Simulated scan of single mutants.
Amino acid sequence: MNPASHSRLQALDGLRGVSILLVLISHAWLGHIVPGGLGVTIFFFISGYIITRLMIAEWDKTAQVSISKFYLRRFFRLMPALIVFVLISLGVMQLAGVQWQWIELMSVFFYFANYFGIFVGFSGDLLPPPLSITWSLAVEEHFYMLFPFVFSVCIAFPRRFLTGLLTFIVAILLWRLYLVYGVGLDQLVHYRIYKATDTRADSIMYGTCFALIQARYPGLAAHFAQRKALIAGVLLMLASLLIRDENFRESWRYSVQGIALALMFTHLIGESNMVSRVLASPAMVYVGRISYSLYLYHWLVFGIISFWLPDLSLPVKFCLMMVASLVLADGSQRLIEAPFLRLGQRYLHAGIKH
């Protein structure tokens, strides 16, 4: 791997670290100051970008994409840590006297936790339901249930592929606009738009489109590297955060943030500016590499503190949540994620040999 590619990968890990820190700090009783929802949107964008780049690289090398290997890699990457997290969460719920239902576990492992949380709700009242944090995993998996098949059919026709993706992005925006201004937020259940796949999948598609543009349309991608693109992206992102109208926030905000991220992305993961160097710093790269487990466990820690230690001062609760979340995530990454990733790589490599 050349130094430029390595630097970009590190900056990507660092940007993923920023996304999880936004979520973590927001949930640590500072949601009125820190935009945790933006962290999720960034994470969706990065997911779409990275996976599309990897699939394009595989296609360019072999003229095909192994869909079975795609799903096996995701299984080894996500499922072992998720299983352990769920088991620990069930133990905590048992200690708190929460009577959980089997349908809740099914919603997690069969990836309908977002809709289950919206329309039914997870068990728990005084203890914030730890399994509810898996809603974003459901959004991603719904997208990736279809995307590899669509990619395999469409990548040979990049213009049509890009047009199709942009059409879906516009369609989802129009669907959100209908729900907000046609149906009305007062008629929708809480988090109907924020957590549902049909209203949030476009956040992943923006990253997918950007990866496709970089790989197949370098002339167009060069425009995103210009300073005016960065300035426009920063202004759009600020506008998305400063406009507090709830109708805007539930309809236009995700689209504005997706466009802003696309305009800023080249500068964020570049190799020759101060921001990318900060993102590629060891601390940010480390946080990015444990971001999956950190995302899972921080909400469990929040629930534990809220249930058993509610009277602690805010600074103490904040520090405790930061430290405990990082320790649990680090342990999960070292003891669960990394070993199973190596196991998956050996399995897939053995499959290639045979």
Results as ranks from 00 to 15, higher is better:
332 S>Q: 04
354 H>C: 00
65 V>M: 10
289 R>T: 08
229 A>G: 02
324 A>S: 11
306 S>E: 10
220 L>W: 14
259 I>G: 05
306 S>F: 03
207 G>D: 06
307 F>T: 02
338 A>T: 13
122 F>I: 10
77 R>N: 10
263 L>C: 14
116 F>D: 01
152 S>P: 02
104 E>N: 13
9 L>F: 10
350 A>R: 15
54 L>M: 12
191 Y>T: 10
74 R>H: 08
106 M>R: 00
142 H>E: 09
220 L>Y: 10
140 E>G: 08
14 G>M: 04
30 L>A: 07
280 A>W: 06
228 K>P: 00
307 F>I: 00
107 S>V: 12
353 K>C: 04
297 Y>S: 05
151 F>T: 13
226 Q>E: 14
215 A>T: 05
351 G>F: 07
64 Q>P: 01
97 G>L: 06
31 G>Y: 11
209 C>I: 07
171 A>Q: 05
338 A>Q: 13
330 D>L: 09
348 L>T: 06
104 E>T: 14
151 F>N: 12
247 N>L: 11
29 W>M: 03
71 Y>L: 09
3 P>K: 11
315 P>D: 08
178 Y>Q: 06
334 R>F: 03
206 Y>R: 04
35 P>D: 11
332 S>E: 01
226 Q>I: 06
174 L>C: 11
282 P>S: 13
123 S>P: 11
295 Y>D: 08
211 A>P: 06
25 I>Q: 01
218 P>R: 10
312 L>V: 04
313 S>N: 03
204 I>L: 15
286 Y>D: 05
340 F>M: 09
135 W>C: 02
93 M>N: 05
33 I>T: 06
162 L>Y: 06
331 G>K: 11
68 S>A: 11
110 F>I: 09
312 L>C: 01
325 S>E: 05
106 M>W: 09
231 I>T: 13
75 F>W: 14
330 D>W: 15
345 Q>F: 07
234 V>Y: 10
142 H>A: 02
116 F>R: 02
218 P>Q: 04
103 I>K: 04
60 D>T: 14
102 W>N: 14
93 M>S: 03
298 H>I: 11
331 G>H: 09
269 I>E: 11
28 A>E: 01
309 L>E: 00
119 F>S: 09
88 I>H: 03
65 V>G: 07
43 F>E: 02
86 V>D: 06
115 Y>L: 01
173 L>Q: 12
151 F>C: 12
116 F>V: 06
314 L>N: 08
241 L>R: 08
290 I>D: 00
342 R>K: 14
195 K>N: 09
178 Y>G: 03
45 F>R: 05
64 Q>N: 12
329 A>H: 14
102 W>M: 15
49 Y>H: 15
29 W>V: 05
199 T>Y: 01
198 D>H: 10
